[in-house]
């Protein structure tokens, strides 16, 4: 144990020696080599661990833009991981499983460490909109899992993959209006379990469950894109095409289509897109291609 490091980290979480020790151990495990190319920067102001792969990248540039408004949902979720309560965010750029734009993993440590990895190809070649939806979607995963972990409902395996910690056998679904938010999560996950919802989908299905008072995670992402994304940074042809398809409400419709990215296999997706017809339908089902060709310049 590097006590100098622990003492330094302790300034982050004053008086919380347990948290400081957990962070020191985490860093020592992740970065065992004494190599400048294989290291991380712990930002004690922003209170986030930035991997060297993340520093000075297009993804970091977008991350900074997304935090511009301190009242945005992204900023609020980011602030949730300020370390003082034993929650840490670790940002990386690297390889992800085939084709994935980003992944989030937890940790089986006592303290809460969440790693968000943006795919290297998305970092290098992806548009700003692709990075926006990737970072915000993954931040929602981290925030959602942290809330579930706080409530004692989630555990992580050695690879950082979450699994509900409770048993759904013989679970009777209660009246959702009569129970706490934590119990609602249990009820929803058990309902999916009882219905034999496809393995691995529960976390994405939760995107469509109300948690932020009256809006769900996906709606929060849609609103974030509408309000915080610089739509004027997109090309005239991008904006004209969207306006021709959706009319004056095009920003909301495009933001909505983007917010469903990654949720295509959830139960809410097809009802959403089946509400549209003709060229609006085509635009929505081709949203990946539309945003792949968007602005890639982050300044």
């Amino acid at each position: 144990m590097d006590f100098t490091l622990v003492n330094s980290i302790n300034n982050w979480a004053p008086g919380n020696l347990e948290t400081a020790t957990a962070l020191a151990n985490y860093l020592a495990n992740c970065y065992s080599e004494d190599d400048e190319d294989f290291c991380a920067e712990v930002d004690f102001v922003e209170k986030v661990i930035k991997d060297s792969s993340f520093k000075d990248t297009n993804t970091e540039c977008i991350h900074e833009k997304m935090k511009t408004n301190p009242n945005s949902i992204y900023s609020k979720m980011f602030a949730h991981f300020n370390g003082t309560t034993g929650k840490f965010l670790h940002l990386k750029v690297g390889n992800t499983p085939s084709g994935d734009w980003g992944i989030t993993r937890g940790s089986d440590s006592n303290a809460q460490f969440y790693t968000i990895t943006t795919d290297s190809d998305i970092n290098t070649n992806g548009s700003n909109l692709m990075k926006y939806v990737t970072l915000c979607h993954e931040m929602i995963h981290a925030y959602m899992w942290s809330s579930l972990e706080d409530a004692g409902l989630l555990i992580f395996d050695q690879y950082g993959i979450p699994d509900p910690s409770f048993d759904c056998v013989d679970y009777d679904i209660p009246n959702l209006n009569d129970i706490s938010l934590e119990d609602r999560f249990v009820a929803v996950i058990c309902a999916m379990d009882n219905a034999q919802v496809e393995s691995g989908l529960w976390s994405h299905e939760l995107f469509n469950k109300n948690v932020f008072e009256i809006e769900d995670y996906r709606q929060a992402l849609e609103n974030f894109l509408i309000n915080e994304y610089d739509w004027n940074s997109e090309s005239q042809s991008f904006r004209t095409e969207a306006e021709n398809v959706f009319g004056s409400n095009w920003k909301q419709e495009v933001a909505r289509a983007i917010s469903w990215r990654g949720l295509e296999e959830t139960s809410g997706y097809l009802p959403y897109r089946n509400n549209y017809d003709g060229f609006q339908y085509l635009y929505i089902v081709n949203i990946i291609t539309k945003i792949e060709n968007g602005n890639k310049n982050c300044q």
């Binding site: 992944i103 395996d157 529960w202």
Partner: peptide
């Protein structure tokens, strides 16, 4: 008891 994690699936 049967349940799955959230590991990525290639589609």
């Amino acid at each position: 008891t049967s349940r799955g994690g959230v590991a990525s699936r290639t589609t």
